[in-house]
Amino acid sequence: MVSTTGNESNSDPPEQDLRTQLRELVAGLRREVEALREEITALRRKEAPEGADSLLTREEAAERLRISTRTLHDLADAGEIQPVRVRGRVLYHPDTLEAYIRQQARREDGRRG
Rank of each mutant, 00 (worst) to 15 (best):
I40S: 02
R85G: 07
P14K: 08
G51W: 02
Q82T: 12
E59P: 02
R19L: 12
Q21D: 15
S68T: 15
R30Q: 10
T57C: 02
P94N: 05
I101R: 02
S3W: 00
A78Q: 09
L55H: 03
Y100N: 04
E34Y: 05
R107K: 11
R66E: 12
T20C: 08
T5E: 13
D95S: 11
A62P: 02
Y100P: 07
A52G: 01
A35W: 03
P94R: 01
L18M: 15
T20W: 11
R85W: 05
L72F: 01
T69A: 07
R19Y: 14
L75N: 12
R64Q: 15
Q16F: 10
T96K: 09
L65A: 11
N7C: 07
Y92A: 00
R85T: 13
T69R: 12
I81F: 03
R64V: 05
R37W: 09
D74I: 15
L22M: 14
R37P: 01
K46H: 06
A78G: 07
V86F: 05
T69V: 13
D53Q: 15
P83A: 08
K46P: 06
R31D: 12
I81H: 03
R66V: 09
D12G: 01
E59T: 15
T71V: 10
N10R: 14
A76L: 00
G88T: 02
K46D: 11
L36C: 04
I101Y: 00
E24F: 10
Q82D: 12
E8A: 14
P49L: 15
R107N: 10
Q16H: 08
R87C: 00
Q16I: 13
R102F: 02
Y100Q: 02
R70V: 13
D17S: 11
S9D: 09
N7I: 12
R30F: 01
L55A: 04
L43D: 06
L56A: 04
T71D: 12
A48P: 00
G79I: 06
E80C: 02
L55S: 04
A61Q: 03
R23H: 14
I101G: 00
R70F: 09
N7V: 06
A99P: 00
E50V: 11
R85P: 01
R64T: 04
G6C: 06
L75D: 11
R30L: 10
L18Y: 14
P49V: 07
R87K: 13
E59V: 06
E98G: 00
K46V: 12
E32M: 03
R31E: 04
H93C: 00
S68N: 09
D74Y: 10
Y100A: 08
Q103W: 05
H73C: 05
R106S: 01
E80K: 14
R107I: 05
G79W: 10
E32N: 03
E34F: 00
L75Q: 00
A78E: 11
V86A: 05
A76T: 06
D77C: 06
S11F: 08
A52I: 12
R87Q: 12
R89M: 10
L29D: 06
V33M: 08
T20L: 04
T96C: 01
D95L: 05
Q82Y: 12
E38W: 03
G28M: 08
S9G: 05
D95H: 10
